[in-house]
Design a protein around this nucleic acid. Sequence first.
DNA 1: ACTATTTTGTACTGGATCGAATAAAACATC
DNA 2: GATGTTTTATTCGATCCAGTACAAAATAGT
Lengths: 202, 202
Amino acid sequence: MERKRGRPRKYDPEIALDAALTLFWTRGYAATTLDALSEATGMQRPSLYAAFGDKSELFAQALGRFQQRMSQTLGAVLEQDPLDTALAELLVGVVDVYAPGDEPARGCFVFSVAALEAVEHPTTRAAVAKVVDALDERLRRRFERAVSAGELPAHCDVLTLARLSSAAVHSISLRARSGSSRRALRAFARASAAMLLSAARA
Amino acid sequence: MERKRGRPRKYDPEIALDAALTLFWTRGYAATTLDALSEATGMQRPSLYAAFGDKSELFAQALGRFQQRMSQTLGAVLEQDPLDTALAELLVGVVDVYAPGDEPARGCFVFSVAALEAVEHPTTRAAVAKVVDALDERLRRRFERAVSAGELPAHCDVLTLARLSSAAVHSISLRARSGSSRRALRAFARASAAMLLSAARA
DNA sequence: ACTATTTTGTACTGGATCGAATAAAACATC
DNA sequence: GATGTTTTATTCGATCCAGTACAAAATAGT
C-alpha cells in the first residue's frame, strides 16, 4: 500500500463521517450547519466538499453508515438461540444504541432524523422505507426459523409478529428521544419481548 | 359580542394556526421559514408576531393544537365497546390522520416532527413525552376497564399491553412517513389489534 | 370631521449560511 | 533541487433568514 502523491490528509474519512453522523443525529438535517460540521469533523469546508460532496450527499453517506453498522450489530444479536433471548436481547440492545449515556438520548437516526426529511426528499424516503422493511424482513425470517425449530406453533402469524416487533423498536426510538430513562426503556423492551412471544404462542 | 376598535383582521387565528401546523408538519421546524409561514397563513410577518409570538412560540402553539385535536378524536374512538372494535378502530383511525390522502404522508406531528426537536429543546421534549405518556395512560385505563368488564382476563399485563398498543401507533406514524400505502397501513393496524388482544388473552 | 386604536404592508438590518474561488502548504517523483 | 499533485487554509460573494421599525389603512368612539 503505497503513499499517495500530494499533501497528506489530516483527517480520517471514517472518523469524520462518524462525527458528521453524530451531529446530524442530534440536530437533524436542516439545523446542522456546514460550520458545525466543519468544526466537528476537524475538516475545512473545501475538504468536506472534496471528500463527501455537498450537505445532502454527506447526509446520505452518514445514513448509509448508520444503517450498515446497525444492520450488522442487530443481525448478529438476532441470530442467537433460543428465540426468546434473541428477541429480548435485540430490544434491550437497541436501548443501548438509542439511549447510550446520560446526555439527552437521540433515538434512532433513521426513524427520528432521516424520517423527517422523508416527506420532501423521495430518496431519503426510500432509504427510510428500506431500513423499516429490512428490519421487518429480518425478524420475519427469524420467526420462521423458530417455527421450523418448533419454538413457535406453525399457525402463528409471523408477518404481523415481525412487524409488531419492529414497532417495539420504533417505539423505543421515540421514547428514548422523548426522554424516557434507560431503566424504563429496558423494562419496556423485556416486557414487550415476553408479550410478543406469548402472543405468538396463543 | 361587540366589534373591536381598530382596523379589522384579515385572518382567522384558528385557520392561520392550522396552516402553520400543516407547514411545520411537512417540513419540520428548522426548514420552515417565516416567509413560507407568512404565505401559507396569509398573514404578514408583523401580524404573525403579534398573534403568536416568535417562531418557536408559534411552533409550540401548533403542537398544542395538534395534541388537543388528536386527544379528542382518539379519546372518543377508544371509549367504544367492545374492546376489540375500539382498539381496531383506534389503530385504523390513526392511519387516516397520518396518511390522509395521495400526497406524501406526514405521519404524526408529535412523533415525527416535534420529536426531532426533543434533543435540544427540553420544553419540546417534555411536550412529546407528555403525549406519549398520555396515550399509554389512556390505553391502559381502557384495558383496565375491559378487565373489569370481563373482556380480558384479570391476570393480563395491561401496562405492557397499553405500551405495545402505543408502539403500534408510533410505528404506523413512521411507516406512513416512510411511504407505506394506506392499504398496507390499514392491514398492519388490523392485524396488530388482533395480535395484541390475543396476547392479552393468552 | 376628528381622534384614538388596531392591524396591515413595506422595507430594512444584522447575521447566518451554502458553496466556491484562490492561494499556500506538504508530499512524491524525477 | 525542480516539478507536479493533492490537500489545507483563508476569504469571498450571493442568498437567505428572523425579527423589527415605520408609515399607511381601516375601523369605533366623540
